[in-house]
Amino acid sequence: MMAYMNPGPHYSVNALALSGPSVDLMHQAVPYPSAPRKQRRERTTFTRSQLEELEALFAKTQYPDVYAREEVALKINLPESRVQVWFKNRRAKCRQQRQQQKQQQQPPGGQAKARPAKRKAGTSPRPSTDVCPDPLGISDSYSPPLPGPSGSPTTAVATVSIWSPASESPLPEAQRAGLVASGPSLTSAPYAMTYAPASAFCSSPSAYGSPSSYFSGLDPYLSPMVPQLGGPALSPLSGPSVGPSLAQSPTSLSGQSYGAYSPVDSLEFKDPTGTWKFTYNPMDPLDYKDQSAWKFQIL
């Protein structure tokens, strides 16, 4: 009977010793046993002879290597770790002494450095960015050149030099007046198309007034536009458009034309069986010896 009264063996659950049927240790109110408190290391007290050895090595170098620390530790009968900690504390003490010396050398008012006064946003004049500046400075420094007289040679050079070769001289006033084509001369031969040399188009003023001019072949195509416009036809070669000034309004060009419109200028042929003959000019830059190549039959 006494065997049943004795408590059973101890069981360990999660490293906790349980005594038989008792489960009081598993209750929430019972805390787990805490780790033992780490003991504080005792402070090391250095003797005068030990301090002399350490100070002598510190005077040589503030960062001794492990071999120098072990050698000193053997002399003063201390572990190497204590020597390492002593050098660490000695360097910190040396830095603190240097900072105190710097503070003593500075004057009393030198510690508080005078800061520059901050400028207020409204006091300083700042350039306004509302208006974009002129990058080319046209509004201040540029002045347009004065327009020359209508009959000045410089204007003629600016007008005619675009179309004339570089080897030719500017046309005088008398020749510029001949550039304007007359109405009857352009409409006299509506079906004849003559190819003149390129030099005649640039230099010869008579080429624009003769039936064999460069633009005589364009007349049949330009004249039928007159009834559609409801007024006189516009002429690209009329009046002052080739003269001194090219800047004319469309209203000033509306009254200039080749001449009176005639039914002869239409595109319809009077004789459907007729042929169109292209007159060959020996001055043509295209060297075609066979003139029969310039004739064709309209079917």
Rank of each mutant, 00 (worst) to 15 (best):
residue 98 R to W: 01
residue 194 T to E: 00
residue 38 K to I: 09
residue 89 N to G: 14
residue 40 R to Q: 09
residue 17 A to R: 14
residue 275 T to D: 00
residue 102 K to L: 04
residue 9 P to A: 02
residue 26 M to W: 12
residue 3 A to P: 00
residue 218 L to G: 00
residue 294 W to T: 00
residue 94 C to E: 04
residue 22 S to G: 07
residue 176 R to E: 04
residue 127 P to I: 06
residue 32 Y to S: 01
residue 213 S to W: 14
residue 274 G to R: 10
residue 63 Y to D: 15
residue 44 T to G: 11
residue 187 T to G: 07
residue 111 Q to H: 02
residue 299 L to T: 01
residue 239 G to M: 06
residue 249 S to W: 13
residue 102 K to V: 04
residue 26 M to E: 01
residue 121 A to I: 06
residue 29 A to Q: 03
residue 244 P to L: 12
residue 100 Q to W: 08
residue 162 I to D: 00
residue 6 N to Q: 09
residue 283 M to H: 11
residue 12 S to V: 12
residue 169 S to A: 04
residue 250 P to M: 12
residue 70 E to G: 09
residue 274 G to D: 00
residue 50 Q to S: 06
residue 145 P to G: 03
residue 22 S to H: 12
residue 273 T to M: 10
residue 21 P to E: 01
residue 61 T to C: 08
residue 247 A to E: 05
residue 256 Q to P: 08
residue 78 L to R: 04
residue 290 D to C: 15
residue 238 S to A: 06
residue 19 S to T: 06
residue 67 Y to Q: 03
residue 121 A to T: 06
residue 172 P to N: 05
residue 73 A to S: 10
residue 192 A to I: 11
residue 4 Y to L: 05
residue 170 P to I: 08
residue 263 P to A: 13
residue 13 V to C: 01
residue 94 C to Q: 05
residue 52 E to W: 13
residue 121 A to W: 07
residue 96 Q to G: 07
residue 166 A to L: 12
residue 206 S to P: 07
residue 9 P to R: 12
residue 53 E to D: 05
residue 177 A to Q: 10
residue 166 A to D: 02
residue 213 S to I: 13
residue 267 L to F: 11
residue 133 P to Y: 05
residue 201 F to V: 02
residue 242 V to C: 02
residue 29 A to R: 06
residue 153 P to S: 05
residue 130 D to I: 09
residue 233 A to P: 04
residue 180 V to I: 10
residue 132 C to A: 04
residue 253 L to I: 03
residue 13 V to P: 00
residue 286 L to I: 05
residue 67 Y to L: 07
residue 86 W to C: 13
residue 158 A to G: 01
residue 128 S to F: 04
residue 87 F to T: 14
residue 171 L to Q: 10
residue 113 K to A: 01
residue 279 T to Q: 01
residue 195 Y to F: 10
residue 212 S to R: 12
residue 64 P to Q: 14
residue 21 P to I: 13
residue 48 R to M: 06
residue 170 P to M: 08
residue 235 S to K: 12
residue 85 V to E: 12
residue 59 A to K: 08
residue 208 Y to N: 02
residue 20 G to Q: 07
residue 2 M to G: 04
residue 146 L to E: 03
residue 63 Y to G: 15
residue 154 T to L: 14
residue 254 S to M: 10
residue 48 R to D: 14
residue 167 S to N: 06
residue 284 D to N: 12
residue 98 R to A: 02
residue 15 A to M: 15
residue 118 K to T: 01
residue 24 D to N: 07
residue 160 V to G: 00
residue 106 Q to T: 02
residue 221 Y to F: 08
residue 7 P to H: 09
residue 179 L to N: 02
residue 231 G to K: 10
residue 8 G to N: 02
residue 124 S to T: 09
residue 56 A to S: 03
residue 87 F to S: 14
residue 49 S to G: 11
residue 136 L to K: 13
residue 168 E to F: 15
residue 111 Q to K: 07
residue 125 P to L: 08
residue 178 G to W: 15
residue 32 Y to E: 01
residue 8 G to D: 00
residue 191 Y to A: 00
residue 160 V to I: 09
residue 127 P to D: 09
residue 192 A to M: 10
residue 268 E to T: 13
residue 45 T to F: 06
residue 156 A to Q: 02
residue 263 P to D: 04
residue 190 P to D: 04
residue 116 P to C: 05
residue 60 K to H: 05
residue 294 W to I: 01
residue 42 E to L: 11
residue 209 G to N: 04
residue 117 A to N: 02
residue 60 K to T: 10
residue 132 C to P: 07
residue 147 P to F: 08
residue 176 R to N: 03
residue 195 Y to Q: 00
residue 6 N to D: 05
residue 151 G to C: 05
residue 188 S to A: 08
residue 198 A to M: 04
residue 289 K to S: 02
residue 6 N to P: 08
residue 195 Y to R: 02
residue 294 W to A: 00
residue 55 E to M: 05
residue 43 R to Q: 11
residue 150 S to K: 09
residue 127 P to Q: 10
residue 147 P to S: 03
residue 211 P to T: 06
residue 132 C to V: 09
residue 229 L to H: 03
residue 163 W to M: 00
residue 168 E to D: 05
residue 286 L to D: 03
residue 77 N to C: 02
residue 233 A to F: 14
residue 39 Q to R: 09
residue 161 S to I: 13
residue 194 T to P: 01
residue 163 W to Y: 01
residue 97 Q to T: 07
residue 80 E to C: 07
residue 189 A to Y: 08
residue 106 Q to D: 03
residue 258 Y to F: 09
residue 139 S to T: 04
residue 222 L to V: 02
residue 125 P to C: 11
residue 139 S to C: 08
residue 279 T to K: 09
residue 25 L to H: 02
residue 126 R to H: 05
residue 44 T to W: 13
residue 263 P to V: 12
residue 251 T to D: 02
residue 14 N to F: 14
residue 296 F to T: 00
residue 144 P to I: 08
residue 32 Y to L: 07
residue 136 L to I: 04
residue 32 Y to R: 10
residue 213 S to K: 08
residue 28 Q to D: 04
residue 190 P to G: 07
residue 238 S to Q: 09
residue 213 S to G: 04
residue 287 D to V: 09
residue 235 S to Y: 12
residue 80 E to D: 11
residue 62 Q to R: 06
residue 44 T to I: 11
residue 67 Y to T: 09
residue 99 Q to L: 07
residue 24 D to T: 13
residue 89 N to Y: 13
residue 241 S to H: 08
residue 161 S to M: 14
residue 71 E to C: 08
residue 175 Q to G: 03
residue 105 Q to S: 06
residue 120 K to M: 01
residue 267 L to H: 03
residue 103 Q to Y: 06
residue 60 K to E: 05
residue 85 V to G: 14
residue 189 A to E: 06
residue 167 S to W: 14
residue 11 Y to D: 00
residue 46 F to S: 14
residue 72 V to E: 11
residue 117 A to T: 04
residue 276 W to D: 00
residue 4 Y to R: 03
residue 118 K to Y: 02
residue 24 D to A: 15
residue 137 G to Y: 14
residue 262 S to F: 13
residue 168 E to L: 12
residue 130 D to G: 05
residue 232 P to S: 01
